[in-house]
Design a protein around this nucleic acid. Structure first.
Lengths: 226, 226
DNA sequence: GGTGGGTCAAATCTCGATAAAAATACCGGG
DNA sequence: CCCGGTATTTTTATCGAGATTTGACCCACC
């Protein structure tokens, strides 16, 4: 009954859910490379579970556009391309702009506190260079949007975030991108949001994305990620 | 052994894919009512297949927001509400506007012909009141957007279409909505699109949605659908 | 030497059964 | 008469094996 899952303490939830989280993390972080064939049996053994949960998790990831399915021919991780990346970036700019403005329009004290808290946690993780920075980074960005009373929109943004960050992982973490003062950019965004200045906040947020995007786009164009 | 490739033939594809299409159709068309519990065994027998394909199909539908999953407690069809409907309508207006403009901007002869063809088929089905009108209606609307070089955006629009049309089915087909001259609205949209007049086309398309939306919204508000 | 068909291994997909969990019915006590 | 805890029943989630399909290899044949 006491099964020790050596991978980590991912014991909560059903097997399907655990596998889902594990696989998504592996794909987003580039452990499973773009276009790689995903054999059920291999993943089952690797994750210490049966074939059914793996299959179900892969189905879910298919809807997230992180896995592609070919009928009767199994699963593989989604491919990458410069055009795909450009599309993600563009959609993010449109949709996060929309969500951010609505979030600010609905501003409440509770929401502002959530944003401040999320920012603080991310900041601390960045200073200490802890492992969970990326998760907290996503949490911060989603918290900005979270006050838009629009669950579908938020879900779409969340998925686009994952698709986007995958490219950043693939580009590696030690790249010059970090030399930019990302912390200041975040702080500036936070300030504008707390001032309820939607135009400034949106401009800064989108600039934040576009700068990173242009950088990654360059790498893709050079074929450095292919 | 040659297989007959007929669109009406529900035998093509894997069992999972068949079940997926069947269930989605049943949910969108209201055969399975909002919030209804979806028991695996019942659906297996009803669809003449095993539990695994049903389970997998339900997982996929979860990502389409047509089914809700509660861990360890099975699946049920997504609920409905006035706010949910309003959100769908709003997002559709934003995203289809975006897609339509890009589609028109990329106009090609091939695309224009696809649009004309899709419109003709829908028109004919409406005149003859054939069963497949709704499918062709969706095909027409998607064809308008299909020239936007943005597969992710198109997928989102397709999903939102399904979520939206579900409300229309739930309201019933014999309602006064059909008394509007929908055919003319479609023809006007088509004309503006073929004239490559993005502003007019977008205005008409959104008006088309909002009119239907306001009508359905009224029904929801009255609790007629609850 | 290149092409086409047939065979074989590998992987997917599906099924039925088992174990775990939740919902329901039951019963004794307050 | 109502409430809380236990037993039963229903339903879900998971597993392991069998059936089908795919893709590759090899050999015969043109």
């Amino acid at each position: 009954m006491d099964t020790f899952n050596q991978s980590s303490d991912f014991e909560e939830g059903s097997a399907t859910h655990r596998v889902y989280r594990a696989l998504r993390s592996m794909i987003v972080r580039g452990v499973l490379k773009p276009g790689e064939k995903l054999k059920i049996e291999g993943l089952s053994k690797r994750l210490g579970t049966g074939a059914s949960p793996v299959r179900e998790a892969l189905s879910l990831l298919t809807s997230d556009s992180l896995v592609e399915r070919i009928d009767q021919r199994g699963f593989r991780t989604a491919g990458i391309s410069a055009t795909n990346f450009a599309e993600i970036l563009k959609l993010r700019c449109v949709l996060e702009d929309l969500a951010l403005r609505e979030s600010i329009a609905n501003a409440t004290q509770d929401w502002e506190e959530r944003v401040v808290l999320a920012h603080h946690r991310m900041q601390r993780a960045q200073n200490r260079k802890t492992e969970d920075f990326e998760d907290l980074h996503k949490a911060f960005h989603m918290s900005l949007l979270s006050n838009a009373q629009s669950p579908i929109l938020l879900q779409i943004c969340s998925r686009l975030y994952d698709l986007n960050i995958r490219y950043r992982y693939l580009a590696g973490h030690d790249i010059s991108y970090q030399q930019r003062d990302v912390a200041k950019e975040h702080a500036d965004i936070l300030a504008a949001v707390l001032a309820l200045d939607a135009d400034t906040a949106s401009t800064r947020l989108l600039e934040h994305y576009k700068t990173t995007g242009a950088f990654l786009s360059g790498l893709l164009g050079d074929g450095a990620l292919a």
